[in-house]
Nucleic acid binder design. Structure first.
Length: 439
RNA sequence: CGGAGUGUGGCUCAGUCUGGUAGAGCACCGCGUUCGGGACGCGGGGGUCGCAGGUUCAAAUCCUGCCACUCCGACCA
């Protein structure tokens, strides 16, 4: 992409209503624009990152055996009346009437719709397990939206729903999602801690929140340090095998957010040098809720004994749009955003320091075309602007590599290569610089 | 929903207390000089001061009502 032809409206100053760093940087980098409280338009740069995160989530869901569907944003109130949640949900649900005076709602989540789909087609235990997910916009009319897309009213969520014949099966489904989530966060360059979450009336230990570490995060987490060091299981585990050990390793060690924290237990279960207290952001929540929806909505499965039983369900959510902000909270400096390579909006930027100078233009074009050919989706900064302004805006938007082409270097047959994350620079011939970027 | 605050060109803000010709910086347009970390000079365009009433010779400024947005609290991907 040639920057002179692109739409990347960066700002030198942050709007006064942006309070946290990710919100400020997203607005300054021209990623989002607020349209109303908690409602944002995604500008080209923001949309690129959002889609990259979405794709990472999709790939890890697919790997773990989940199957993608797309459910509508607008749902029928009648389905929610079946589950009993239409009245219970309260003012957070955006209620709408169509021209026939029929009650609709903008979905805040999709248990009812997915249960309706499931019960229409699946009747036998032989067709289980099934895990269906979608990545779709949700709307929750929060009393107090805030912090940009971190807590918007409209947000992009990946929500998966598992169906099993019994509790043992549901636990296997749960374990797959538990481990898949850790892989997602690892690929996004994040350190994530699974903490036990409140399961409500169902009880049991099958609910976890995933908290990514960020100094500016809202929640406080208390965890055994080994849990953080342990990291993700990686993609090559046997997804159809017994995953219980892998999950147990990660749930045995103490981890709690502030609302579930028990200091005495923390001290009993983690030696002093292993006790870690940190701040973080909740970016995922998984839980098993059994028959909560399948029973009232009559999603019944015939078992091997010929008897009908309600499907055992679980649901698994990742805040995709929140992750955009979460990654920035976890990875930025004074100059701007530092994207992990996996979600950076562009692979590299070729900075032409002197557009119009023939020799410089030639080398910059050559570098740009080579990076396109290598699939690096480069940005060519061909703006008629001063070098300082270019460096500042490229640092701000966080492109991982800057390949700097200027008159001095071109005269000597070299370019400068700068790594955004470390600030490290090196001067070298173009072909070598390209090799470094392309790995 | 309780408490607090803010609404003035695209952005950051001054001006409001003490009513009297709407301002600055950034951004934008033109010309020139510049050009390796957000340049400089000269010229220019752009604002019914959130909305509606009211007081007054006169309202961004005072009064009343409404709306929007932000922050703190309780809830949440």
């Amino acid at each position: 992409m040639r920057l002179s032809c692109y739409f990347m409206p960066t700002l030198r100053e942050a709007p006064s209503d942006a309070q946290i760093v990710s919100h400020q940087l997203m607005v300054r980098a021209g990623m989002i624009r607020q349209e109303a409280a908690g409602i944002y338009a995604w500008l080209p740069l923001g949309l690129k990152v959002l889609k990259k995160i979405e794709q990472v989530v999709r790939e890890e869901m697919d790997r773990a055996g989940a199957i993608e569907v797309l459910m509508p944003t607008l749902q029928l109130a009648d389905l929610w009346r079946e589950s009993g949640r239409y009245e219970a949900y309260g003012d957070e649900m955006l209620r709408i009437k169509d021209r026939h005076d029929r009650d609709l709602l903008y979905g805040p989540t999709a248990e009812e719709v997915i249960t309706d789909i499931f019960r229409s087609y699946i009747k036998s235990y032989k067709d289980l397990p099934k895990n269906l997910y979608n990545i779709q916009w949700k709307f929750r009319d929060e009393r107090r939206p805030r912090f940009g897309v971190m807590r918007g009213r409209e947000f992009l969520m990946k929500d998966a729903y598992s169906f099993d014949i019994d509790e043992a099966g549901a636990r296997r489904s749960y374990n797959r999602m538990f481990l898949a989530y850790l892989n997602v966060y690892a690929r996004l360059g994040l350190k994530a801690i699974p903490v036990r979450a409140d399961t409500g009336p169902i009880g049991g230990d099958l609910s976890h929140e995933f908290i990514i570490l960020a100094e500016t995060g809202e929640s406080e987490v208390f965890a055994h340090r080994d849990l953080v060091e342990m990291g993700a299981p990686g993609p090559d585990i046997d997804w159809d095998g017994d995953l219980q050990d892998l999950v147990d390793q990660r749930t045995r060690l103490y981890a709690a957010s502030d609302e579930m924290h028990d200091q005495a237990r923390f001290e009993a279960e983690a030696p002093e040098d292993k006790r870690m207290t940190a701040r973080g952001i909740e970016v995922g929540h998984i839980f098993y809720f059994g028959e909560k929806y399948s029973k009232p909505m009559k999603a019944l499965i015939t078992g091997p004994d010929g008897k009908d039983v309600p499907a055992q369900m679980g649901s698994y959510g990742v805040g995709v749009s929140r992750l955009v902000a979460g990654i920035i909270e976890a990875s930025h400096d004074e100059a701007g955003i530092i994207w992990p390579d996996s979600v950076a909006p562009f692979g590299a930027a070729v900075v032409n320091l002197r557009p119009g100078a023939a020799e410089v233009d030639t080398v910059a074009e050559q570098a740009y075309k080579a990076l396109i050919a290598a699939g690096k989706d480069p940005l060519l900064d061909d703006r008629d602007d001063r070098p300082g302004a270019k460096f500042a805006s490229l640092d701000l938007v966080g492109v991982p590599w800057q390949l700097i082409v200027g008159p001095k270097g071109v005269a000597d047959g070299v370019v400068e290569l700068k790594r955004r994350a470390s600030g490290e620079r090196q001067t070298l011939p173009l072909d070598q610089a390209l090799k470094v970027i392309c790995g």
